[in-house]
């Protein structure tokens, strides 16, 4: 069901902080916020839903573990552009050949400066680059993969000490063939939320997602 409030809200970075405002929660007067999340009523379009999460009661113990405040953030001016990480500038290399070795990337990307860190996630079983693995963030490696044959590309994260080195690597390697595959190279972290040109078309859907996750946070703050 479309939320009429959504249509008058412009998508701006500040809107992302809806969860800080009490008003945000009042729009969803559901007895259980969990049900607002999972019941699909806060989405602009009907969704196919699946899973136990939609049928289970909320656990009171879960409330506080993911509160919206007190998150450590990278220092950011909120403007567009790449964001420095704790120790350097991190770029994402997508489309990496599954048989790529760290040396291959080291050689290619070492041209642009000293590679401080290089994460090329290998499949535990095959030793090949993991093709289905989510990006990781500094101290945590979260590996997402599967073993479906036929996947042939993965990703790497590369850290440089200097902005100029990272920028040169992006300029020099994006769209370039590496081990017979075209890789795409871009910054990993950004200063602020996406700003899409066609946001007008998408923002209703996006905002409905915010509603969903904001409610989620509200629930946990309590």
């Amino acid at each position: 069901m479309a939320n009429p409030e959504v249509d008058i809200v412009d998508f701006e970075p500040e809107d992302d902080d809806l969860m800080e405002e009490e008003g945000a929660i009042d729009e969803a007067p559901h007895p259980k916020i969990r049900s607002a999340i999972t019941g699909g009523s806060s989405f602009s379009a009907p969704k196919k839903t699946k899973g136990r999460g939609f049928r289970e009661e909320t656990e009171a113990e879960r409330n506080n573990r993911f509160a919206s405040k007190d998150f450590d953030s990278l220092d950011s001016d909120g403007g567009p552009g790449p964001q420095r990480s704790i120790e350097g500038w991190i770029i994402l290399v997508a489309g990496v050949h599954e048989e790529a070795q760290e040396d291959d990337l080291q050689n290619a990307f070492g041209e642009f400066g000293e590679v401080r860190n290089l994460h090329l996630n290998l499949d535990r079983r095959t030793g090949f680059v993991k093709v289905n693995q989510l990006p990781l963030f500094s101290t945590l490696q979260t590996s997402f993969c599967n073993d479906t044959p036929g996947n042939e590309e993965g990703y790497a994260l590369i850290e440089y000490g200097k902005f100029e080195e990272a920028q040169a690597a992006i300029s020099g390697m994006d769209g370039v063939e590496l081990l017979t595959q075209i890789v795409t190279v871009d910054w990993a972290f950004s200063n602020g939320p996406f700003k899409r040109r066609n946001m007008r078309k998408r923002f209703v859907a996006l905002l409905s997602s915010f509603t969903f996750s904001d409610a989620h946070y509200k629930e946990r703050i309590r």
Binding site: F66, A67, D70, F71, D72, S73, L74, S76, P82, Q83, L92, A94, V131, N132, Q133, L134, P135, F137, F144, C145, N146, T148, N151, Y155, T184, D186, W187, A188, F189, S190, N191, G192, P193, F194, R196
Partner: peptide, 21 residues
């Protein structure tokens, strides 16, 4: 607790991973 913003490229890669899985 940590939070940061990812570029569209990273989100696109995430979507690909989920989709392929």
């Amino acid at each position: 607790r940590k939070e940061m913003f990812l570029t569209p490229s990273v989100l696109k890669e995430c979507r690909r991973i989920i989709s392929d899985s």
